Amino acid sequence: MTTTYLALLPGWLSPENLITNMGAWAVLGIMLIIFAECGILLGFFLPGDTLLFVSGLFIASGAININLGLFIALVSLAAFVGNMVGYWIGYKIGPPVFNRPNAKLLKREYIEKSAAFFEKYGKITIVLARFVPVVRTVATVMAGASKMNAKIYTLYSAIGGVLWIASVTIAGYFLGQIGFIRENLDLIVIAAVVIVICASAFPAVAHWVVRRREKRAAAEGGAPVPPVVEQPATD
Rank of each mutant, 00 (worst) to 15 (best):
A166F: 03
V189A: 12
V228Y: 10
M31Q: 15
N21P: 02
I72H: 13
V168N: 06
G179E: 13
A73W: 03
I190V: 14
L8M: 12
T169S: 13
I188Y: 12
G62I: 13
P227E: 12
I34W: 02
P203R: 05
F44R: 01
A233W: 00
P10V: 10
I165Q: 03
G39N: 03
F98T: 05
R212A: 14
Q177A: 14
S167Y: 07
E119G: 15
I181Y: 06
I33K: 00
A171K: 00
S167H: 06
A63K: 12
Y121L: 13
L70K: 10
N99Q: 08
A201L: 15
N184D: 10
W12G: 00
G43S: 10
P15V: 11
K215F: 01
G69V: 04
P232N: 06
A158V: 07
A223K: 15
N21C: 02
G43L: 06
L52T: 06
I197E: 01
K107R: 15
W25L: 13
A217I: 13
A166Q: 04
L41H: 01
D235T: 09
R100N: 06
A7S: 14
F53D: 03
I124F: 03
E183P: 03
T137F: 09
S76E: 08
C38Y: 08
A116T: 09
A204S: 14
A233N: 04
I33P: 04
A233P: 00
L128F: 14
L106F: 15
Y87R: 12
L32I: 14
V132D: 05
V162Y: 07
K107C: 10
A78L: 07
S146A: 15
L41E: 01
V162R: 04
T137K: 04
R182S: 13
D49R: 01
L8S: 15
P227S: 09
N102T: 00
P224F: 06
M148H: 12
G172H: 01
M31E: 15
Y87D: 11
G23C: 05
C38D: 12
I93W: 14
F58R: 07
L42A: 14
L13M: 12
V127H: 03
S146H: 05
T154S: 15
F58N: 06
E37F: 09
L9W: 07
V85S: 04
A192N: 07
K151Y: 04
V189M: 12
L68G: 11
F58H: 05
V193W: 12
G11T: 11
A206W: 01
R182C: 00
V135E: 02
L9A: 11
I40W: 07
A73C: 06
A129S: 12
R136S: 07
R211Y: 09
A158K: 04
T234N: 08
K123D: 02
L68Q: 08
L57N: 02
V54T: 11
V225W: 00
